[in-house]
């Protein structure tokens, strides 16, 4: 395994990467540094100087929320909408992509083209007709409405990611199951879906991040404060407090923390999952 041997050159590479990594973290350092500064004009003092009076009060102020709502409330709203939407995207998207990939033929090519086209569509043009549609269905201002919207908007991306992986998936397992007389549904759930895990990881992360960070859709379809999602609450700080960067940055730090912790723990699965269809 000469490939993994730790040579002086590797050490050099390690040092260089650590340096680049530290440089990469400067904005995060600034964020944390400002978030513990007391208010007033010290915020505008030297950005790199660590304050002599560090305080966590910005975090408690931030946690109480902006005029739009509390951070905790925003968290719960975002978590509910994101998790249900992602679960449905995975369930529906994998099944749809699987069908298209396995059926083949002209219809299959047409559908592939359609969903790929969907990746490029200008979603914002659909906002007003979509609002009218959702209103008629009584789904405006509801979690289920938001979930349906996200599932629809991110279906093309989900299918794009699953399709690529499916094409490279060897058929041997499915064939064996078929020989054993398993039904297509059983084959999908017992054989194919577990094999799709890496693609599922990709979908979960990409779609999850898009939904978690989305700002405009919830404003229109959920209204302002009563169902405010996390980004809406954070934006409320900016609109309201204007210059209180210490509180805004504390709010940002709180909102990002769970995602970073999640990544640290799930890293190995994610990097494998990110392969988006590249299989070792």
């Amino acid at each position: 395994m000469s490939y993994y041997r730790y040579t002086p050159r590797t050490l050099l590479r390690e040092l260089v990467m650590v340096l680049i990594g530290l440089a990469w973290m400067v904005p995060i350092f600034l964020l944390l540094n400002v978030s513990i500064k007391p208010g007033g004009f010290e915020v505008y003092g030297s950005p790199f100087a660590v304050t002599s009076k560090p305080t966590l009060s910005n975090y408690s102020t931030a946690w109480q929320g902006s005029a739009v709502g509390s951070l905790g409330h925003g968290f719960v709203n975002s978590a509910i909408i994101t998790s249900i939407s992602v679960a449905l995207l995975i369930a529906i998207g994998s099944l749809t992509a699987y069908t298209i990939a396995r059926r083949g033929g002209r219809a299959s090519r047409l559908l592939t083209g359609l969903f790929t086209f969907g990746l490029a569509l200008p979603v914002q043009l659909g906002t007003i007709p979509l609002f009218a549609e959702m209103r008629k269905l009584g789904l405006v201002g509801t979690y289920s409405g938001m979930v349906i919207i996200y599932v629809g908007l991110l279906m093309p991306l989900t299918i794009f990611l699953y399709m690529g992986f499916l094409r490279s998936l060897p058929l041997d397992y499915e064939q064996a199951a078929r020989v054993d007389g398993a039904s297509p549904l059983r084959i999908f759930f017992r054989v194919v879906f577990p094999l799709l895990r890496p693609a599922t990881g990709t979908v979960a992360i990409l779609c999850g991040l898009i939904i978690w960070n989305d700002f405009f859709t919830p404003l229109i379809f959920l209204g302002g404060n009563s169902h405010a999602t996390l980004p809406v609450v954070i934006y409320g700080f900016v609109a309201g407090l204007g210059t209180e960067w210490n509180i805004i940055f504390a709010a940002v730090a709180i909102s990002v923390a769970p995602l970073v912790i999640f990544f640290i723990f799930a890293q190995r699965q994610l990097i494998r999952g990110y392969s988006g269809g590249i299989k070792a």
Binding site: G93, T99, F115, V123, L125, P129, E133, P156, I159
Partner: peptide
Amino acid sequence: WILPGLVVAVAIQFYPV
């Protein structure tokens, strides 16, 4: 099997856009 995915994509994305 493609119906749920197709219907929701058409209803939420293709038709409104």
